[in-house]
Write a protein that binds this DNA or RNA. Structure first.
Length: 346
DNA sequence: AAGCTCCGCAACCGCCCCGGG
DNA sequence: GCCCGGGGCGGTTGCGGAGCT
């Protein structure tokens, strides 16, 4: 492997910079500036190539550099900008004063690695809950504004006899709580069952299904580190290691209502309205917006390489980090025996 | 305590662009 | 128009510390 032309000299030193070298570089740049980087090593008395000096100054030594952990605001900004510009780290860095492209790139790479590694612990569970075929929903005609009873069915569902449906327990009629029309902060239940997924890596207590509104049913087989596939009528949150239901406004741990229609380029978004409309989105062309009105914490993007959406969600995870994860939606829905793209397997 | 693995991050590498000769 | 060197940038490597067995 050849070196850059400016680094061909035998005497050029590589590797970590010593404090003495840093001091020499700082002293020189402070006094003279850096008009031509190729001249800096000689004039500063450094046995480094100009490029190395430039990198050291820009990424580490310059006085306006900001070090330390990224704040949540910075992290969100990075995610948003990455959505728009991709791996153009310098462009992203230009929006974060004091941060370098290198730092952001490193942060993103380690962050992403962390995100795509975590789904592997779900793989085993998914292999037992993978399903095939499409499904649709219907709402009951006797729905009232007072009670919102609903009925939902799974249609066109073709379970493999050897691979029992994780949804069987959820087919039926469930009452919904009465709305308090004076409470404007109360969440309005959807008029259809929504398809939610929970990372139940926190301990699931079967007792939790008996609390609150009893609308959330967790499969009896669900266990620690399991991925529960739940049909619920409206908001649900994972609280304190339990999965509970309620009219909570905390949606950090809730995934949007989405249905995989079998076409890897589409998802069906179940929207809030009395016709129970299903709005189909072409993710590849338009990108995707969460069904949640508060979608600050959720983001979907089209992953060109995997040909599926990336799915970002909050995780009340085993390590208690409550950090967000990213995973391809197809890997979560699972349409085959191995829903994970090979590149994501450990 | 020693060995091993994992991970963060500084630094390097190679490619591309641009400007001057 | 071509060549060459410098600067900028994204991808990648590998060192070293932390944590685990």
């Amino acid at each position: 492997m050849g070196h850059h032309t400016c680094c061909n000299q035998q005497k050029v030193k590589r590797g970590l910079w010593s404090p003495e070298e840093d001091e020499k570089l700082i002293r020189y740049i402070t006094a003279h500036g850096y008009g031509c980087w190729s001249e800096v090593p000689d004039k500063a008395g450094l046995q480094r190539c100009g490029k190395s000096c430039r990198l050291r100054w820009i990424n580490y030594l310059r006085p306006d550099i900001r070090r330390g952990r990224f704040t949540q605001e910075e992290e969100k900004l990075i995610i948003s900008l990455h959505e728009v510009v991709g791996n153009r780290w310098a462009q992203i860095a230009s929006h974060l004063p004091g941060r370098t492209d290198n730092e952001i790139k490193n942060y993103w790479n380690s962050w992403i690695k962390k995100k795509i590694r975590k789904p592997s612990r779900m793989q085993h569970n998914l292999s037992t809950t993978a399903f095939h075929g499409g499904y649709t929903f219907s709402t009951a005609p006797d729905m009232t504004t007072e009670q919102y009873p609903f009925h939902y069915e799974l249609l066109n569902y073709n379970p493999n006899p050897n691979n029992p449906s994780p949804f069987e327990n959820f087919v039926g009629t469930k009452p919904l709580p009465t709305l308090d029309t004076d409470d404007h902060h109360q969440e309005v239940p959807s008029l259809h069952p929504s398809f939610f997924m929970f990372d139940t890596s926190s301990v699931i207590s079967q007792d939790s299904t008996a609390t609150t509104t009893q609308l959330l049913h967790i499969p009896s087989s669900a266990s620690n580190s399991d991925l529960a596939w739940c049909f619920v009528d409206h908001q649900a949150v994972a609280v304190g290691g339990h999965v509970e239901m309620g009219l909570s406004t905390d949606i950090n741990f809730m995934l949007p209502a989405l249905v995989d229609d079998g076409d890897p380029h589409h998802l069906l978004e179940l929207t809030y309205n009395d016709q129970c409309l299903e709005k189909q989105h072409d993710l590849q062309q338009q990108g995707y917006q969460s069904t949640n009105s508060n979608n600050n914490d959720e983001l979907l993007s089209w992953d060109e390489s995997q040909q599926c959406p990336n799915f970002l969600f909050w995780d009340n995870a085993v390590d208690g980090s409550a950090e967000d994860e990213i995973a391809p939606f197809s890997s979560l829905v699972g349409t085959g025996t191995s829903p994970y793209p090979p590149s994501l397997l450990p």
